[in-house]
Structures are given as C-alpha cells and as structure tokens.
Design a protein around this nucleic acid. Structure first.
Lengths: 294, 294
DNA sequence: AAGCTGATGTGCGCCGACGCACAGGATGAG
DNA sequence: CTCATCCTGTGCGTCGGCGCACATCAGCTT
C-alpha cells in the first residue's frame, strides 16, 4: 500500500461522512479529496464509499479503513507528542563514550546521574576505536588531547589530567630512585606500544630516554599501570590513580607540559536537548571535586 | 500530524539506513526523500536522523517513528488484503430489505442462506419507507411493481405475485358468494387505506366497486388480511397466503392483470461482490420452489 | 411551489513538488 | 596511493496535483 496520505483523506471522509467536511479538516480543496478517494478506490479495485448528493457513506471496506486509520492517527499523535517532548525530558538512553583509563573517575558520575534521573538508561562505552558522534553512536564523548575538530561537533574543555612518573616500591628498592631525568641512565621504562601516541608525556619520554630503555610496552593504560606496579619499570600514571596506590613511588611529579586536556564533545543536534545538557552540567559539577586534575 | 506520506518516507529511511535505499523502495528520487525528511524534522522541531556521508542513522526519535510506522505499515497491508479479498468472500453483514407482506416467504430463504454461509450476519429490514440503496442502507432490496429506475441500480425480475379475491367462510355464510364482479352489488370490501396505491388489483377494485362499498381500510397488507379473515368483507390476498388458510373462500381466482411483479434491486457497486451474487442466486433458486407465484 | 443551502462533480490555470544532473565526500579494494 | 563505488546534497527545468470557479442536484424551509 503506497500513498498513506490518501488513506488519511479517506479516513476523514469516512469519519465525517462528507467530502466537504473532510476537505475543511484536512485543509485542502474538496476536489482534492474526491481525487484522492477516486485514486485509492481505483488502486484497491473496490468501492470504499457509496456516493450520493448528501455525502459519502462508507461501505464495509470504508468502515474497515475507518477503524484502522483511527488507531493510526492516534498512534501518530502519540508519536508526535513523544518526539516533541523528548528534547525537553531527561529520559531514554544516554550513551557516553570516553577514552579508556578514566572509567573509575566517570563511573561514580554516571551512577549519581542515574540516581538523579531514574528514567535514564545509561550506557558507558570505552573502546580502543573512537566512537563517532555523527553516526549517532553516542550522545557525549570524552576525548583526550586536541583531536580533529569535526564539523557539527560542539566541543568544550573539561579538565586537564595530571600525569607523573612512578615506579613500584619494589623497583626502587632494586634499581634505585633517579632524582631527575639526568639520572635515567640504566633505568628501564614502561610505555605505550604504539609509536604514534600523541600523548605529550609519551613524546617527552621518547625524546629523553633511549629506545632500548623502554623494556615493557602495552597498548592499554590499565595494562601499563599494572606493569609499573609489578615492577616492570618506570612509567607514566595519572596522578589521581597514583594517589590511591601506596605501593607506588613518585619518580617525577606531574608537570604542566605532561598534562592532557580532556575535551567534552557532543553532536550539535543532541547538544541542545535537556538530557544532554543535564548530563553535561552534572559531569562538570562532579569534575570540580576531582582532585589531582586541575 | 499531517502528511502521512512523509512519515512513510521517514519510516523507510529509518528501516534501511540510507536515503538512496529508501528512494528506491519508495519509487521516488532520493532528492524527494531528503525533502520529506527535512520538512518532517522542521515541523517536528526535532532531528529524526544523524546525517553522514554513509547514510542516515536514526536518533531515538527516529527509532520511535520506525517502531510506530512499522506497525502502521503492517496494519495497512492487512487492511488492503482484507479489502481486496472482501469482494471475493461471503462474509460480514448482508442487509436485505423488502416490501412488507412477503416476510414469511423470505425468512426461510434467509435462514437457509445463513446455514450455507455461517460467516454472514443477516439483517432483514421491512419498513414502510423505502430503504435507499445508494445510501448504503441495504445490499439487496425486493420491491414491487415498476418503481422509479434509479441510476446505478441494477434491477432484475424475481417472480410475479398472484393475488385473488377472498372472503371468510363466515362472510359468505352471511352475505352469500358473488359468482362474478357483476354480482358485487350489496357486498362490502376491504382495501388499502391510501388513495394512491399503485397496486394493479387495488386500482381494479377502485374502478369496479363504488367507494362506499369499501367499508374497511388499512395500510398494512397483514392488517388487511386479518380484516378479511375476521369477516370484514371481500379483499385481495396473496394466493400463496390464502392457500394456507382453510377459513378463506375464493371469490375470484387470481388473474394475470392482478399480478404484481417483484423486482430484485441491488446497487451496481455491491452487485459484483461474491456475497451479493451468492445471495441473489440462492434467492432465485429458492423462488423456483415458491408455489402460487408464477 | 419556489427559493435557499450545502453537497458532489468537472474543466482550467498555476504553483509547488518532483526528477534530473552534477558536485562533493567517505570508504574500501587493488 | 589511487581508483572505484556509493552515499548525500543542491540548483534547475518540468510536469502533475492543487485550488478555483462553475454546474448540478438533493433536501429543507418558507
């Protein structure tokens, strides 16, 4: 069945009983209504109405159409009210994606947000690949560094993540603790696997130490942290994580040049909705209480 | 919500994920699809899709529309198959209207028809006023005489109803039995109330007897018959009814000029349907067994 | 009886929606 | 790296559907 508008026209005719009444309700000329009915009946190969000078009387088929289209109109009306109200309510799904490694910072934010807005179903995605906002894969993305600025993405700074150089207590007891980067000779380091990492501290490390000193590499930040804590070498760990780890020894304190700025990215279409706005304010409020970040 | 076609377009886009695919399915140009989506979103004031170079990804609103329109399409498909099949099935309502006075002839026809097609709900209407077929008030009408031939009505002859002059046995014992219309003088007659009755036997009676001889008048045939049987006078009674009444005496046997032809009338739109055709053949088959008619 | 009202139905002219063609961009294969 | 493919997006010309006006007809009122 093609051409739903003709069904809608026939629906109004069946409901009101006259072509003129339907035309007035539909906001079209009554000639248009007649044309729609004629076309619809011709394609169906069946009469929907008995025509007479006082109006159109629905046949059994017409009554059947009336009943079906009645529910359809109600469904559409509900749909429209839902859609129109959807931008104003804080409900439905909220998909947040972030870089790996700050999930323990974000999870309490997510849960408290869900406490505040019980109608929201939160999905928190962290993956190696970058989720694309313009594909509708997420409402809010938390990204690191100064990535490519895509059009239609509204981006705002969140916090600057402090990072320092740490080693395990066992490592220091075995290899000593360098007082500065001048004493790095003879030490072993833990770093990222990928050569092209754009994190400023990794680039700094590659510039300061010889490649063969990097004796342990991993791709995930969590794996790197675990490696450091198990004594594989000296490595960069986010300051907020190191603060909770008494088995770690600070080799070099966080420097400003090592800080990685976190960006809050949303798609422009979703940015305006109340749900996204509610989450953004909630997230920024919570970020004020984050220690060792700014 | 106006313009259901745009919802249908958006539905196909949400279902297929691309404008081009939806355009192909809908049989329109993809530019038309884009225009529909743009117009719909503009009127809704909300985005239904995330646009990107590889297609359109439905937002939550788009998914909502998808679900609603999915059921709508199924409902419409069912509706169309019902309507297209309706002319081919013998089911639903069958409204038959007839002149009063032959209901005891028709009722067994109706009941046996319902036995044959259990899915049919039969409504049998007899009323003084003439039901109008072009208003959809009945599928089949059984009418008497040569009434006005309305356009769009297909009419075919059914039977010729024989009528004779009868009186009650009590009347004959009291007033005697005239051998022919030459001996009508001094007799009293029962006739119709209305002056303008077009029944041929009533016109014959008005021409043969003096007005004051018509001592009893009624409008309904059943009332006239009751009056004759109670001895109110000599009156016309359908031959098939008089045959079952042993208390009636035949004054004059049925004549051809008194016969009233019964017409079978249907609206041209309904005439073609299997249901009406089934009833017409069933009725004509049954009419062959009617005695004292032809 | 006669006019009035409100309905259907139809020919005509015009505007808006449609198809067309092309540009631009993203993605995957070789 | 380049080509090929498939997608979206847009300006332009055209055609189909729409509104308009009028004819016609059935009830209803006066």
């Amino acid at each position: 069945m093609e051409n739903w508008d003709e069904i809608r026209t026939a629906f109004q005719v069946a409901r009101l009983g006259t072509v003129s009444g339907a035309a007035e309700v539909l906001g079209v000329h009554h000639a248009t209504v007649i044309r729609h009915i004629d076309a619809l009946e011709k394609r169906l190969g069946a009469k929907l109405f008995q025509r007479h000078a006082r109006g159109y009387t629905p046949t059994e088929s017409g009554h059947d159409l009336l009943a079906v289209a009645q529910t359809t109109e109600e469904q559409f009306a509900h749909l429209v009210s839902r859609i129109k109200g959807q931008g104003e309510t804080v409900s439905g799904e909220l998909v947040v994606t972030s870089i790996a490694g700050i999930s323990d910072l974000l999870t309490p934010v997510m849960t408290s947000f869900q406490d505040k807005w019980p109608d929201v179903r939160v999905r928190f995605l962290t993956d190696m690949r970058v989720f694309r906002l313009d594909y509708g894969e997420a409402h809010v993305a938390i990204r690191a560094g100064a990535g490519p600025e895509e059009p239609d993405n509204v981006v705002q700074p969140l916090v600057r993540l402090k990072t320092g150089l740490y080693a395990s207590r066992a490592y220091v007891e075995r290899f000593g603790k360098p007082a500065s980067e001048a004493e790095f000779d003879g030490h072993r380091f833990v770093s990222t696997d990928s050569e092209a990492s754009r994190a400023p501290f990794f680039r700094w490390l590659r510039a300061v130490v010889r490649p063969e000193q990097i004796s342990y590499a991993a791709s995930e930040p969590a794996a790197l942290e675990q490696a450091v804590r198990h004594g594989a070498g000296i490595g960069f760990i986010a300051a907020f994580r190191a603060a909770d780890a008494p088995d770690l020894v600070e080799i070099l304190p966080p420097r400003e040049e090592w800080e990685t700025p976190l960006r809050l990215v949303t798609h422009v279409d979703l940015h305006r909705t109340r749900k996204v706005q509610a989450f953004l304010t909630h997230l920024k409020d919570s970020a004020k209480d984050w220690k060792l970040c700014r």
